[in-house]
Design a protein around this nucleic acid. Structure first.
Lengths: 220, 220
DNA sequence: CTCATTTTGTTGGAGAGACAACATAATTTT
DNA sequence: AAAATTATGTTGTCTCTCCAACAAAATGAG
């Protein structure tokens, strides 16, 4: 198991690697591997545990009645997912968690985080604070997705997404972590329409792109 | 101040009214009143405190560059808002919190909740767990909004929203807390188009409504 | 390298919703 | 009660996106 990554994760921030390793026992942590495409958590089912992604990539997606897929968010190594459902007793998952690449996941019992030895071990309070920060952070991510899908035109959505990404990275040129189809699913638009609009935006001098490398042209 | 409501809120769940009242001091709680339409928290600004709504109604909204307004969620008495921003250090608000009715709000310092006397007072651990549950719950609400705005047609969005609301209330007939304009903003569609589609759905026998009272007709 | 598969880009037709402008109903004010 | 204001419903035009079908490019396998 990758102790280093665990100690550096948001969840275990501020906790020494040794202490973190010791806590894993207490938290009933279990590591599990998933091949590309596997479902880690299924829409409509109860969520027994939160997942800490050790390696690979996970997409949080939702399929509607007509087969359209909407990507809620993308999870990278060191990030937590499904923690909100696990933290609300009785909640069923509204989404699927699917391995976008072959992935290794550390499953953690949230109720253990909340209830076991809250005063006994010195780092437990820190762990709970960290968990709260993770959930709050996820909140902001969801709010961002809402922001990016609020504009009524594809161009508006693309600009909302790309400018936020640009600000987040602090660069005007960057790689996006989505394929065209995935970006379309994230922005809730048609892939082919997205491709067409991207081409038009490039011709209009708003952006430049090649594959997943985008660059924003700011000329007021 | 409404001690009863505070003690019954999700944040103070499981904490005795007396204990809760005592904690308010420690948490630097301040009550503030806002007239209808007032901004409680402004988009782009830092968020110093979380808000616990004591009376009235608050809408979490976002305005885009073109003046379109998107309603993120609706806050009722006893509910918490702005807590996610307050819980992530350095985060600026992506949204406005605006008083939809004349409102009274209890402002709470989140860092106080997280850091002061974590072991000293017996109920503090409970308070932190409650805060986590609130943030997680908010998470699910945001996920629901994403679900309701994912369908590409107005009818799909309306059905997604109304059926979720029906399931939540456990009834087939219920009042919605939004005006037409607000529902349109929540679903990210045009008000007039929403009105037209609602009328069509009624003619198609899918729903019945009068003002804000809706009723779902299920005939497969 | 060649072939198969996947990903991305292109186009045209059909349809849905935005937008504006107006009509009607409901609510509030005086 | 009348007038003013606000909320909701109606209609037609025009734009944008979906959808389907195809073309081209990129990737992977043998």
């Amino acid at each position: 198991m990758n102790d280093k990554l665990i100690a550096q994760s948001d969840l275990f921030r501020g906790i020494s690697p040794e202490e973190a390793a010791a806590m894993l026992h207490c938290l009933q942590a279990v590591e599990r591997r998933y091949p590309k495409g596997a479902l880690i958590c299924r829409q409509g089912e109860a969520v027994p545990a939160a997942g800490l992604l050790l390696s690979g990539e996970v997409h949080i997606v939702q399929d509607d009645l007509w087969g359209n897929q909407s990507i809620f968010s993308r999870i990278g190594p060191g990030e937590l997912f499904s923690e909100a459902y696990a933290a609300v007793p009785g909640a069923v998952s509204l989404v699927n968690a699917v391995a976008a690449q072959e992935s290794s996941v550390l499953l953690l019992s949230v109720s253990r985080i909340l209830h076991i030895c809250p005063s006994a071990c010195a780092f437990h309070a820190q762990l709970i604070r960290n968990l709260l920060a993770c959930v709050a952070q996820k909140n902001l991510r969801l709010a961002q997705k809402i922001t990016h899908t609020a504009p009524k035109t594809i161009r508006g959505r693309v600009l909302s997404y790309l400018s936020a990404e640009s600000i987040r990275r602090g660069k005007r040129s960057f790689q996006i972590p989505f394929s065209r189809q995935q970006l379309a699913d994230y922005l809730c638009v048609e892939r082919s329409a997205l491709s067409a609009e991207l081409g038009k935006m490039q011709r209009d001098g708003l952006i430049e792109f090649r594959k997943n490398a985008f660059s924003l042209k700011t000329q007021e």
